[in-house]
């Protein structure tokens, strides 16, 4: 009988302690105040470069909507055939069309020209391409502009945000070209790579 009473008493004490603890918990709710940063949303800019044929004024973005690189055909001047020992000229205007909030300068670099595509061309040994940076198309047909340019087709152009620049190309056919190659045509591809500075 005594043990039963003791158990009941212990149970009552436990319940009392539990209730007491639960009551004490309420006292932890002291004054407090919260505030928000209202920092907003940070957004990344677009990396957008436009290409414009400086003769036809035809324009495209370097990166197409599907994420692939654009291929852009340039017009040459003078148009028509190129006589051995003479040159033809072309130019492309690049625009830094980013919407970056801060400074955003880009550098366009040309890679080694590919003559005749994957299969090559017998004209390749007799063709040389020079690339120089310019501010307008009118400069592209000035032979003196290319005097110090390397003949491997590489060149660079720095363009500030919202600005444009021109890459001029001089395509020369060597005077030593054999007569057997007369009348042949070929395609010259110049890769342009643009990086953020």
């Amino acid at each position: 009988m005594q043990s039963t009473r003791a158990l009941k008493a212990t149970g009552l004490v436990l319940v009392a302690v539990l209730l007491g603890l639960l009551t004490v918990q309420g006292s932890y709710a002291l004054w407090n105040k919260s505030a928000s940063t209202n920092a907003g949303t940070v957004q990344a800019a677009e990396f957008r470069v436009s290409l414009t044929d400086t003769i036809t004024n035809q324009a495209t973005d370097m990166t197409l909507d599907d994420g692939t690189a654009a291929s852009f055909s340039l017009s040459t001047t003078p148009s028509g055939v190129v006589v051995p020992g003479q040159s033809s000229y072309a130019g492309v205007q690049l625009g830094n069309a980013t919407n970056a909030g801060g400074e955003f300068t880009i550098r366009a670099s040309t890679g080694a020209p590919v003559v005749g595509g994957n299969t090559g061309s017998p004209l390749a040994p007799y063709l040389s391409v020079k690339v120089v940076a310019a501010s307008s198309l009118s400069q592209c047909s000035q032979a003196a502009l290319y005097a110090t340019a390397p003949s491997n087709g590489t060149g660079t152009l720095d363009i500030a945000k919202a600005a444009t620049g021109v890459l001029c190309f001089q395509i020369s056919l060597a005077a030593t070209m054999p007569a057997s190659l007369t009348g042949q045509s070929t395609r010259i591809a110049v890769p342009i790579i643009v990086n953020q500075l």
């Binding site: 002291l30 919260s34 990344a44």
Partner: peptide, 22 residues
């Protein structure tokens, strides 16, 4: 490459709390 172009991050989840100590 062009990684994370046009990406966004919302920072409105950050806040502050001043809480009294007993």
């Amino acid at each position: 490459s062009t990684d994370a172009t046009k990406a966004t991050v919302d920072l409105s989840g950050i806040g502050y709390k001043l809480e009294q100590q007993a």
